[in-house]
Design a protein around this nucleic acid. Structure first.
Lengths: 221, 221
DNA sequence: ACAACTGGACAGTAACACTATCCAATATTG
DNA sequence: CAATATTGGATAGTGTTACTGTCCAGTTGT
């Protein structure tokens, strides 16, 4: 197919397709003459992926480029797959962040994570921002959140395809990023459910005890 | 304190403080003359909150304004608190999204969520983008992710302060948004841990069976 | 008196993700 | 074969967002 058909098949304007080609997100088509090239199903698929990452996961062009470059150039260990997936979303290496709370939490959990893992810095940053926002979370609650995250991670890893490295990489990179949104939405919905069962119509003047909340919450499992 | 001191206390430039005042994110100081006003600790706290939401949770100015307006004007039911927190992050009401998968999942879970809950639309969108990105997730895995999200939500609701509505609202709004990042970082780290235990050094040429993955994962709980 | 500072208005900037215009070379059509 | 349309590449422009810089009248401190 020609570029205009590619555009028609995906709903993405030709000018934007050219832009993605220029930015290296979309591989060039196979040239059939000096001024023409043809595209195929892989280009349609790649374009859909680019839109899902940009619109859905709010990745920047540079981050999408890292994803697509990784897809075109996979690492050779299974463990490297998820590491690559993570490096896509890592923030800049902030030196001024207090890493002690994050380090303490990870030590308590006993997780096997690298000292320089980008996600470790992200955790430190996120905890620092909780503090800046005036939110305090008890160590017990943090452990609970960690257990919840681990349950998701176990599903993530078990769902990795084991047939081809390409499939595993795609799943690791794209699934990790796009499933973030699913998990966030599910957490909001679960909050609504738990909150409804706990506080059903209660006015803010009434006080709910932690025990009552826990009791009501337990019944929703 | 004067505006320049407020700026010094938070590290935010005076011009930016003026901008936040103009945008209605920061309440005006109490005027002491026709051209001067004084600010206090609540303004410092509010500025730190604004920065945490903008830098940490990547909220837009408009979303931060919704948060601060809600903080200044709280709803009067406990359940409304979390609903308000959720409406802050809801995307636009997209009509063209396939809601059937999200509805099916929620029906299966039996959660008490409103038909028009913004998070429901967000879930539908996120699932649609998974599809567009070429990622398929089994119903069992979705149920697993939902259980993980619910575990987090139970902690969220139990951690709501019950003394004053203001504290509860602040926790609901700010904590929900800022804890998203903590949960995402924890999921990445847990992936690294689970992946390390499952695939330790294995090359992509070797095949790992789902049973082996599940077995290894179980030992990490 | 007089420089310094204050807060408000308004225009300017930088980054980002496109989007529109132009162009030479080629394809298509009558 | 001539006229027209289309292609891909280069380049410049647009709209949005979150600030940031400049100016100014009024007020404050010395």
């Amino acid at each position: 197919m020609r570029m205009s058909e590619l555009s028609g098949a995906t709903g993405i304007p030709v000018a934007t397709v050219k832009f993605y080609l220029r930015e290296g997100l979309l591989p060039a088509g196979t040239p059939i003459s000096a001024t023409s090239a043809v595209y195929d199903g892989t280009h349609v698929e790649r374009l859909r992926l680019i839109r899902a990452l940009i619109e859905g996961a709010a990745l920047s062009i540079a981050q999408v480029r890292r994803v697509t470059q990784t897809l075109d150039n996979p690492p050779d260990t299974w463990h490297g797959m998820l590491g690559t997936a993570q490096s896509v979303l890592c923030g800049p290496a902030d030196e001024g962040v207090e890493t002690a709370p994050a380090d303490a939490l990870l030590r308590r959990l006993g997780w096997a994570v690298g000292e320089c893992s980008p996600a470790r810095a992200d955790l430190a940053r996120a905890l620092a921002r909780l503090d800046a926002g005036g939110i305090s979370v008890s160590p017990q609650d943090l452990d609970g959140y960690a257990a919840s995250a681990q349950a998701a991670a176990v599903i993530d890893v078990a769902a990795l395809p084991t047939d081809t490295p390409e499939a595993a990489l795609r799943r690791a990179v794209v699934g990790t990023v796009l499933l973030d949104n699913v998990l966030i939405a599910l957490r909001r919905l679960a909050q609504e459910d738990v909150s409804a069962r706990t506080f059903a119509g209660r006015r803010t003047s009434g006080a709910a005890t932690g025990a009552a909340i826990a009791e009501t919450s337990r019944s929703t499992g």
